[in-house]
Design a protein around this nucleic acid. Structure first.
Length: 311
RNA sequence: GGGUCGGUGGCAGAGCGGUCAAAUGCAUCAGACUGUAAAUCUGACGUCUUCGGACUUCGGGGGUUCGAUUCCCUCCCGGCCCA
């Protein structure tokens, strides 16, 4: 009997430093998969060490997509990601392979899994700059006039959200409600696996990871972004975490490498917490720990995946 | 030994007679999230609580005062300067 897997997608997710990439590569080789990165920073060229991108050698171990596809001077976003990723998914499935989405950017993953329908309103730079001057309160009142419905559930103190909502209103009248998209999952069948690690272990991994990336030249990378690629400090810092902190060190606002390292570690720990909070909401995620034993660390994940795709 | 500045919540650091359980930042904990998502944002953070409050805190001890984290004395500890 011919088994069909032409609508099955595997998602490997988890907080930073949980070891997602290794799992994805292993699965890709085992099950004939191709990996689509869902990471909002690894999208950019030249941001390798700071973003924790896997090496070129590792990338060669399985087909990878959505890595290094944008210049850091352009602005990438969920909507673009979704469009492009969907095309790639279709293509992978058509060739009889298994798409494996792997990443830690929860919102981007959700965009695919829940088929979030983003309103076709492109960012309006000028409007954003103008609105940025206003207080959250003013923005909120403005939105209340434009779209009382959206104003009802929006975070009234979050300027970024308020600005985007107003931006949408200006363009198409109101923000389309999201409730209509409940059943968006539609055409695809997803298996979402979260890499489970307890907090202490993850903190330890993050710490090690930061140390390793320091040795790999994380500081130099940021220096290059500024000097060679002519990116402003402000732009670099908008990428967050190390990209935010390292310029402070280079500018002399952080005194020592030791202090810088400690701060990056803390920032990544906090980031991991935000990721955990985000992922915790999605009850469909199956959390699986990686086994300690060497022979097959991924036995449990393998079992789950086998059952899912029926091999 | 003399002088001087200081010892505040996990840390840094305000407060300098009442409005102080004590600003602010960090850390910690919890949470939100419709084209910036590694971003952005919210709440909690002495103890107990029937959530109105109650109780114990600002190096130790003593004092002044209706009232002290804030003033005085003294002791202990630290920084700096002079010897």
């Amino acid at each position: 009997m011919e088994f069909r897997s032409d609508n099955k997608i595997i998602v490997i997710l988890g907080p930073t430093a949980s070891g997602k990439s290794d799992v994805a590569i292993w699965l890709a080789r085992k099950f004939g998969g191709e990996i689509i990165s869902a990471d909002s920073r690894q999208i950019y060229r030249g941001m390798d060490i700071g973003s924790g991108k896997i090496t070129v050698a590792e990338q060669k171990m399985a087909p990878h997509y959505m890595l290094d596809i944008a210049s850091p001077r352009t602005e990438y976003n969920v909507a673009k990601f979704k469009k492009k990723a969907e095309k790639i998914i279709k293509d992978i499935l058509k060739r009889g392979k298994v798409p494996i989405i792997c990443g830690g950017t929860g919102f981007w993953i959700k965009a695919i899994v829940d088929n979030v329908d983003f309103p076709e309103v492109k960012p309006d730079k000028e409007l954003r700059i103008k609105l940025q001057e206003l207080s959250a309160e003013t923005l909120f009142n403005k939105l209340k006039e434009l779209d009382p419905e959206r104003a009802q559930n929006i975070d009234a103190k979050n300027k970024v959200r308020l600005i985007r909502a107003i931006e949408i209103c200006k363009a198409i009248g109101k923000v389309p409600p999201i409730e209509n998209q409940e059943s968006g999952t539609g055409n695809y069948d997803f298996l979402q696996i979260g890499i489970k690690r307890d907090k202490e272990e993850l903190d330890e991994r993050i710490k090690k990871n930061v140390g390793k990336r320091f040795e790999m030249g994380m500081i130099e990378e940021v220096e290059n972004l500024h000097k060679k690629h002519k990116l402003s400090w402000k732009k670099i810092q908008s990428f967050g975490l190390g990209y935010n902190l390292i310029p402070e060190y280079l500018k002399g606002n952080i005194q020592s490498k030791k202090e810088l390292k400690e701060k990056i570690y803390l920032a990544e720990k906090n980031y991991a917490k935000r990721q955990r909070t985000w992922f915790a909401k999605d009850k469909r995620i199956i959390w699986i720990p990686i086994e300690q034993k060497e022979k097959n660390k991924y036995a449990n994940i393998e079992k789950e995946v086998s059952r899912f795709i029926g091999k």
